[in-house]
Design a protein around this nucleic acid. Structure first.
Lengths: 173, 173
DNA sequence: AGCAATAATTGTTGTCGTCAATAGTTGTTG
DNA sequence: CAACAACTATTGACGACAACAATTATTGCT
């Protein structure tokens, strides 16, 4: 577990199990459904929540949470970034980054290195161990995604991914 | 203390203005981007977050948050539901519903009525004022959605909406 | 009548997000 | 070149919130 500075014992499992995340099916013809999901934005919000829950459920056995994962994912594409960049790019508060990197460092997934240019900034790099972890959890991620995208066939999934990506390109964090 | 993630969700008076939510555009060709958004599930999560932020930014001037909105939206389709149903259907803890309905009642958007069948359950109904509010904010919602879905043309938006709806039908709270 | 189950509610606790403050470092400018 | 402004990482404090447990009132069962 990781509890960085908190140095505590039990992180108190968030009780997000597959069972209570996966809820009862929905009939789109019920009136309340029409009311709820009328708007694409709101729909996106709800589904994002659900996706996050599923992801977290997968991650929690490794003691990490989505934010850690986000940092790792980011690092995987940059080979080394100062914390400041993590903050702005991922949209987390600088003080949040500190704890996240602490945790990752404690698990050996990342490490801080002094910047050659600027002595106040510290560059976070992904370790081999971190890269392994990332590859392993990618499978879990795909499993989750498969679960989430259940009713869609491969072509539709591809389409959805493309659409979402287009939206994301337009200013995400 | 374990992190503390940034520029994000929905505290009472968040510094979530349209300005700092809408951030710098993203180039999908940058390597970190490929790392970050490789998975549809994760992508969905990030976009859901963003959508929630935008929604909250719109709602905050009325003193409500996304959860309140979800309750109102649900009520709009049911004309009266016991709090227990709100809890299970929306996926919120029963104790959370209490506060939410308290707020809505205080603003005159909803009210509790005794259930004729069961004296321990209280039925929450949308008031006319609440219905008005809902209609007003719907416009704002559409505006947000439009902003969010910027790069998509109408046909693509329709397509996205349909896809998301299909996913949502498959078990969403 | 007695007892398990349920609805709403309160209280508690741990976690999170935000802001303010600090220390060390850099760049700038008078 | 010395003073000052800006910036990086970090810590600490505070308010808000979500998850759980416990309480009260009511119902259904046997």
């Amino acid at each position: 577990m990781l509890e960085s500075a908190g140095s505590s014992t039990e992180p108190r499992e968030p009780a997000i199990t597959r069972e209570n995340v996966t809820a009862k099916p929905i009939d789109a013809h019920e009136p309340w459904m029409r009311g709820l999901h009328a708007d694409t934005g709101y729909l996106l919000y709800r589904l994002g929540l659900r996706s996050g829950q599923l992801f977290n459920a997968c991650l929690q056995e490794s003691g990490l949470r989505l934010r850690h994962y986000a940092v790792l994912r980011f690092l995987a594409g940059t080979d080394g970034a100062p914390q400041r960049e993590l903050s702005t790019r991922l949209g987390y508060d600088p003080s949040a980054i500190v704890g996240l990197v602490d945790d990752l460092e404690k698990l050996g997934f990342a490490e801080r290195r002094p910047s050659p240019d600027d002595r106040r900034s510290r560059i976070v790099v992904l370790t081999d161990s971190g890269r392994d972890f990332l590859r392993d959890t990618d499978e879990a991620g795909l499993r989750v995604t498969g679960e989430l995208l259940g009713p869609l066939d491969p072509a539709e999934r591809e389409l959805l991914h493309a659409l979402l990506l287009r939206i994301a390109e337009e200013g995400l964090n």
